[in-house]
């Protein structure tokens, strides 16, 4: 096994054994099951099924918790080992900093992916049993995983940039608050009070990974984006329904790579 593969396996094992993994899997499982049981199978009315409750619930569950749950272990990943000296010992072995970093990245991503799969798989079974189309679930699940990867990348990048775990966690929580609510509220206020241009709202929606995720989910359920009013219509007009989805996914994909790569650049350039 190459050093890189060894590192990946070790990081996966470390993440899977961490207390957070079991806790997350349990939380995802319970909340997913609850959501699926309550809203996963809205009654069929005239051949139409509503996803409003399940959808709003899923969006909020995913948007509030998945990012935080990805951020916390990711921001701790490097700072922790830096503090304990394990990182320096590891780097003194015949490995490169890049391998160590990528090992952590892949390990965290795999562990979170597994935790999400455990939770959403079971919830998905309930939802499918209650009549939710499996294809739609698959798309939503893919987007949730992508969202988790975004915040693994952000967390890991922050972890590489900061020296102590406490600081990394603080920064993580601030970033989370900013992306989940404060940033968007700021834009809302800027629009209402100072007449910020409408395109700024749209740009923010694509740039902020949380909002891009929401856009992707809305687009999967309602390709016309009629829920999103004139701004939604303009988006669909400009890029088409698949374009919306693709752009949102692209935004998420960039977020899932760029912060992590920035962290890698910092981490592999020795100080």
């Amino acid at each position: 096994m190459t050093p890189a593969a060894l590192l990946v396996r070790r990081e996966i094992a470390t993440a899977l054994r961490a207390r957070w993994f079991a806790a997350y899997a349990a939380i995802f499982l319970l909340s997913g099951l609850l959501l699926a049981a309550v809203g996963g199978g809205d009654a069929l009315i005239a051949g139409y099924r509503g996803f409003a409750r399940a959808f709003a619930g899923l969006v909020h569950l995913a948007l509030l918790f998945v990012p935080l749950m990805a951020l916390l272990p990711a921001t701790a990943a490097i700072a922790d080992e830096r503090e304990s000296g394990a990182l320096e010992y590891l780097l003194a072995q015949p490995v490169t900093a890049t391998e160590v970093y990528l090992g952590k990245w892949v390990g965290l991503a795999a562990a979170l992916g597994l935790a999400l799969t455990v939770g959403f798989g079971a919830a998905g079974a309930v939802a499918v049993a209650r009549g939710v189309p499996p294809g739609l679930l698959a798309v939503l699940f893919g987007q949730v995983v992508l969202l988790a990867l975004v915040f693994v990348a952000i967390g890991l990048g922050l972890s590489a940039l900061t020296t102590s775990r406490a600081r990394a966690t603080t920064v993580a929580v601030v970033v989370w608050l900013g992306l989940v609510a404060l940033g968007t509220l700021g834009i809302l206020i800027a629009f209402i009070r100072w007449g910020a241009p409408a395109w700024a709202l749209t740009v923010w929606t694509f740039v902020n990974p949380i909002e891009a995720f929401r856009l992707g989910v809305v687009s999967a359920l309602d390709p016309d984006l009629s829920l999103l009013g004139p701004a939604g219509a303009r988006i669909v007009d400009r890029v088409g329904p698949y374009g919306t989805n693709a752009l949102a996914a692209l935004s998420l994909a960039l977020w899932a790579l760029v912060p992590g790569l920035a962290g890698l650049a910092v981490f592999s350039r020795p100080k």
């Binding site: 009315i45 079971a122 079974a125 939802a127 049993a129 209650r130």
Partner: peptide, 29 residues
């Protein structure tokens, strides 16, 4: 209203398989 319709055993099996598979993989890894 028409109650939720149970259906798609393949989808259900797939989803259950996902959970069990992921759990087993996590345990092994």
């Amino acid at each position: 209203d028409a109650p939720p319709r149970g259906s798609r055993p393949v989808g259900i099996l797939l989803a259950v398989g996902l959970t069990v598979g992921a759990g087993a993989a996590a345990w092994r890894l």
